[in-house]
């Protein structure tokens, strides 16, 4: 092993053996991926940038993200400020017009970006964290534990998605944190399955055997050896799902569940504008366009990311 002698002398035997296992694992990973050790992340970004559509969509997603973060600074008005006459048509002063209470729709949409994107990210994070944990346990231990957890996933997935989220929303109650959990719990089954299937492949890899042979604990093998290798595909799949989560969140808010007025989540804006669709169609048009553009860009970025990571398409 190409280790420096003084390091071998200094380290405790177990650590030494483990660092050897890690080295092997690195070599294994390198063989699987690219022959030269380059930064995977940069390589993928470079491959993604070949397509103009990807670059544009990434820019749009970043733009929305920036608007969401900077909304309190750059929005012309606060989201609950009544600043003008009700039902003003879109004009230079109010680009997206005003709503039934004379609130500036542009400002509300900008503040709404924070809630919509925040809900999407946080809920995805929740389902990723729990799903990975459960999927890891099921995939690593196999047998009865696996059967039990997978049957549980079967049951959760035999309730149509939006219905499950809705029932959870009813149970958890309204509010931002509760909505995040309602959306996140609904997605656990899917990410648990993904994690499990990549664990099943990795469980038999040599570096796991190597780690086990030097008596690493299960927790250590899972957290230090398997998860870093299983993480990427699960992350990509989940990223591709953020758009769908944002759409589900908007749907729930549209039904009046989830985030409550006067908070300007995009679905809630649509739900509020719906009653005035004859009188003031711009109340519905603009928030919906924002959802469409953001979700479209997210989906295209996800597609691009998947293509860039697909070894079959490598040059």
């Amino acid at each position: 092993m190409p280790e420096k002698p003084e390091k071998i002398g200094g380290a405790a035997p177990r650590e030494r053996a483990e660092s050897a296992a890690a080295l092997y694992e690195g070599a294994y990973g390198a063989l699987e991926e690219t022959p030269k050790q380059k930064s995977q992340f940069l390589e993928i970004l470079k491959r993604m940038s070949y397509s103009k559509v990807n670059v544009i969509c990434l820019a749009i997603v970043l733009f929305f993200g920036l608007v969401a973060v900077l909304a309190p600074l750059i929005a012309p008005y606060g989201y609950a400020d009544m600043v003008a006459q009700p039902f003003l048509r879109p004009s230079a002063a109010h680009l997206f017009g005003t709503d039934n209470l004379g609130r500036d729709v542009l400002s509300r949409v900008m503040h709404g970006a924070k809630y919509s994107i925040g809900l999407g990210l946080a809920a995805t994070g929740v389902s990723l964290a729990f799903g990975m944990f459960l999927g890891a346990i099921a995939g690593y231990y196999g047998g009865k534990v696996d059967d039990l957890l997978m049957r549980f996933c079967d049951i959760i997935q035999s309730i149509p998605g939006l219905l499950l989220n809705m029932a959870l929303c009813v149970a958890f109650g309204t509010g931002v944190a509760n909505t995040i959990f309602a959306l996140g719990v609904g997605g656990i089954a899917a990410s648990a399955r993904l994690m499990r299937s990549s664990f099943l492949n990795l469980r038999k890899a040599e570096f796991v055997d190597a780690a086990r042979s030097i008596s690493c604990s299960d927790a250590r093998i899972i957290s230090r050896h398997i998860i870093p290798n299983a993480f990427a595909p699960v992350l990509v799949q989940t990223t591709m799902n953020i758009g769908a989560v944002i759409m589900t969140a908007a749907g729930l808010n549209f039904l009046g569940l989830g985030v409550q007025a006067p908070r300007p989540e995009w679905g809630a804006l649509l739900s509020g504008g719906r009653d005035f669709i004859r009188k003031a169609p711009w109340l519905c048009i603009f928030p919906g366009c924002c959802i469409l553009v953001l979700v479209l860009s997210l989906n295209l970025v996800g597609d691009g990311l998947r293509d860039a990571m697909d070894p079959k398409l490598k040059k």
Partner: peptide
Amino acid sequence: LGVSVPHFWLALMLIL
């Protein structure tokens, strides 16, 4: 586009 459009918004736009 079809995958990304929220169907409830599409419904509202159709009504409009």
